[in-house]
């Protein structure tokens, strides 16, 4: 039941590289804008917030791969690693901008904020949790860790929850944009426990399709 035409096999590799290039475009564009005065009168905060929002967007896209395959039959599994890594790169840039451009490497106040401010603590925990996922995203680690790899990479769920919470706690009032992002994370996380019954129901209602896809 593939809705969109599938990509020729020879383009799979290049399309993954294209994802990295396109995925890094927002950061490059906003950096250019910030450096040339295009981000308004508070460019650092604007840049920092945009990087954070894009990090959450890539996390959302990463989490959407599985339901997209289950429900719509679109298999974009090959892009999941790239999306996850892009999320990590954006979190890292978001953190670096906060550390260097926003707080000016004032380590005593930075340490105080990480300990005292729940939303910053949560953000830090998410960043630290993403690091081992990024480090073990290569094929060698997947082979080497075997079933433990899947276990480890389930960390993405608390990280996504933490990312949404971090956003929720950082804003003065929950307006449309934070609401939409947080709601998407909530829906995608809520799908996980429902996945097994859903797939079972799908298999039961269409036995031939289920066998064909195994």
């Amino acid at each position: 039941m593939t809705v969109i035409p599938s990509l020729p096999r020879r383009l799979h590799g290049p399309s993954i590289w294209a994802l990295y290039v396109i995925g890094l475009c927002p950061a490059a564009w906003y950096f250019y804008q910030g450096a040339t005065g295009g981000l308004g009168v508070n460019p650092v905060k604007t840049f920092e917030h945009l990087l954070g929002i894009w990090a959450l967007r890539f996390l959302i896209a990463t989490l959407a791969i599985t339901p997209l395959r289950d429900i719509a039959g679109i298999n974009w599994l090959r892009y999941r690693r790239g999306l996850g890594l892009l999320a990590f790169y954006y979190v890292l840039m978001h953190f670096a901008v906060w550390l260097i451009l926003d707080r000016g490497l004032d380590f005593s106040s930075i340490a105080g904020d990480i300990v005292k401010r729940p939303y910053i603590t949560i953000g830090m925990v998410c960043l630290v949790s993403l690091a081992p996922l990024a480090a073990t995203s290569n094929n060698w680690s997947i082979r080497r860790l075997g079933p433990r790899w899947s276990k480890l990479h389930q960390l993405i769920y608390p990280v996504a929850l933490g990312g949404a919470l971090h956003y929720l706690l950082a804003v003065k009032s929950v307006t449309f944009q934070p609401f939409i992002h947080i709601a998407l994370v909530a829906v995608l996380l809520a799908y996980r426990p429902l996945r097994k019954p859903f797939l079972g129901w799908k298999r039961g209602s269409k036995p031939s399709v289920a066998r064909a896809t195994r």
Partner: peptide, 19 residues
């Protein structure tokens, strides 16, 4: 409750590389 009030950022001063 969620952030410090000890410092402030003066808008219009400094720049992208010097808040």
């Amino acid at each position: 409750p969620r952030w410090s009030q000890a410092t402030e950022q003066r808008i219009g001063e400094g720049g992208f590389f010097s808040v």
